[in-house]
């Protein structure tokens, strides 16, 4: 099962990426660039669809082969993207909301820029815990 999560800043740079796949069976270096390509391409659709709804969670926006992209747009237009090979609306919604909270906490750090990568190990760990919980 493939699960890839990324936070993309409003300048389109990925500021956090995590491969949340269950115990990497696949060779990672083969697919990482494909995941990035899909997520990057889906930004076009996310930017379009986010105006259609009042919710931050805009569900599945894009699909490539068997991979779905679900998205969540924060008020600051930071986009949380989840690449999954299964549709799990409820789980991804919960996941997005919790990660959003975590992200806001990270942003409270005055040394964390909006467009700079999040390197905090605890953030990474918590995101992984959330993924285990909801996805």
């Amino acid at each position: 099962m493939t699960t890839y999560f990324a936070i993309v800043s409003r300048e389109d740079s990925p500021i956090y990426e995590a491969d949340l796949s269950v115990a990497g069976k696949k060779d990672k270096e083969e697919t990482s660039h494909l995941h990035q390509f899909i997520l990057h391409a889906s930004l076009d659709i996310v930017d379009e669809r986010m105006w259609d709804t009042n919710n931050m969670h805009i569900k599945v926006v894009d699909k490539f082969n068997e991979l779905f992209v679900a998205a969540y747009v924060t008020a600051g237009r930071t986009r949380l993207l989840l690449l999954c090979d299964t549709r799990n609306e409820d789980g991804s919604k919960q996941f997005f909301q919790e990660v959003h909270e975590l992200y806001l906490k990270v942003l409270l750090n005055p040394f964390q820029g909006v467009n700079t990568p999040i390197m905090t190990p605890s953030f990474d760990q918590r995101v992984r815990n959330l993924a285990r919980k909801y996805l």
Binding site: E11, S13, S32, H33
Partner: peptide
């Protein structure tokens, strides 16, 4: 389209 945005794997590919 891709470069200097920080998409490391893409640029590398």
């Amino acid at each position: 389209v891709y470069c200097s945005k920080g998409w490391a794997y893409i640029e590398e590919h």
